[in-house]
């Protein structure tokens, strides 16, 4: 099972991940990233991989 990992030191809440995989990522009212599904559904995996690639803060990883 693939697992999403967030480097909290790096994350600045840019929301790029949210735009690519909205079911998995959401920036909350405090500006902090919430991961709704740490083990994303198969349908979401492409979006999550995109998000890992595109994260401007390089704060995301997907352990597969």
């Amino acid at each position: 099972m693939s697992r999403v990992q967030v480097d909290r030191e790096r994350c600045v809440g840019s929301g790029v991940c949210e735009s690519l995989a909205p079911d998995v990522f959401e920036i909350d009212d405090e500006g902090v990233l919430q991961v709704h599904r740490e083990e994303p559904a198969a349908d979401d995996l492409d979006g999550v991989r995109d998000a890992v690639q595109s994260c401007p803060a390089r704060a995301l990883a997907l352990a597969e």
Binding site: E9, V12, G13, G15, E18, S19, I27, E30, G31, V32
Partner: peptide
Amino acid sequence: DDPRHARIRRIVAKTFTPR
């Protein structure tokens, strides 16, 4: 610089998200 930058940025981060 972080961590101060990140703390300040989080105040408005939500407003600028795609959602």
